[in-house]
Simulated assay, not measured.
Amino acid sequence: MLKTRLLTALILAPLAIWAVLGLPTPWFALLLGVIVLGGVWELGNLSGVESAPIRFLLVLIFALTLWMLFAARGMDWVDTFIQFLGAGWLLNLILLLSGRFAPEIRKGLNLPGLIMGLVALSGAWLAMVKLHGTADHGPQLMLFLMLLTWVADSGAYFSGRAFGRRKLAPHISPGKTVEGVFGALVGGAVMAAALVWFQWLPLSPVVLVLLCVSTVLVSVGGDLWESFLKREKGMKDSGNILPGHGGVLDRIDAQLAAGPFFLAGLMLLGALR
């Protein structure tokens, strides 16, 4: 499994880096939109939309929504939406870790889960497109966000395997441990040091470290949220399109939370020009 996971990552990572740094924002938005639409297809399945034609219609409607959001990305309400979404992901982490919400096997349509998932996917796409289109170092910051979640995920994986003892949220994801989260946070701090070195943002080193570590912590909530949906559906993976990684949602669940939270933090700190 680890070998397959690494092989898939070695193939996809260079393509992702090229897309972020080499494509202008409209083309980047289009490519990212295709990926997100794959997530919408899987979300439909996780939410109990069993009919393939209806799921396909859902994907088409969502594609039209992304097109309209791209046209509106410069409006003031979009910044407010992203900031609320960032706060929502923080609240999501707190609620899921509280133990008050436990997944139960669902039959039929899970409409609340579907709506929340569509909002999460559209908000993450919008945040990443806006970040990529930022005048100063936009593509570089987008690449940093991707690397931040990748490094944190790797840190969590290896530290969890080596030192994992205490379960983080056994009612949602029995495999995740507190030690794994600490490994992810260490990875986030290391990446923050790189961001300080490059001086892409007019923020102090302490603030950058806090922002990156907080983003990594909130991204754990994205992972738990997707695990919650999978447990309700009785599925191990959201799909099987990526060998060793599962489906599209399995690969981007952390970014769904990290993207809006990171951009909202930069907005509130006045770091974007």
Rank of each mutant, 00 (worst) to 15 (best):
L2T: 08
L2Y: 10
L2R: 12
A13F: 15
I17E: 00
L21P: 03
G22D: 04
W27L: 15
L32C: 07
G33K: 00
I35M: 13
G38I: 03
G38K: 07
V40R: 02
G44Y: 04
L46Y: 02
G48A: 01
V49C: 00
I54K: 10
F56E: 09
F56L: 14
L57Q: 09
L57G: 13
L57W: 12
I61N: 14
L64Q: 13
F70S: 09
F70W: 12
A71M: 14
V78L: 07
F81T: 10
L91D: 01
L91Q: 07
L96N: 06
S98R: 04
M116Y: 13
A124T: 03
A127T: 04
M128C: 04
L131P: 02
A135P: 12
Q140R: 10
M142V: 11
F144K: 12
F144L: 13
L147V: 08
L148I: 00
A152G: 02
S154R: 02
S154T: 13
G155Y: 03
G160E: 09
R161V: 14
G164N: 00
P170C: 07
I172A: 04
S173R: 06
G180F: 06
V181T: 10
L185V: 08
L185T: 06
G187I: 12
G188S: 07
V190M: 14
A194L: 15
W197F: 15
W197I: 12
Q199G: 14
L201K: 03
L201W: 06
P205E: 00
V206E: 05
V209E: 02
L210W: 12
L211G: 06
L211F: 09
L211K: 05
C212N: 11
V213Y: 05
S219I: 08
S219K: 09
S219E: 07
G221I: 06
D223P: 06
L224Y: 09
E226I: 00
R231T: 10
M235T: 04
D237G: 09
D237F: 08
D237P: 09
S238F: 05
G239I: 01
N240H: 12
G246V: 02
I252Y: 01
A254L: 02
L256H: 04
F261C: 14
F261Q: 10
L263W: 01
A264T: 11
A264L: 12
L272R: 09
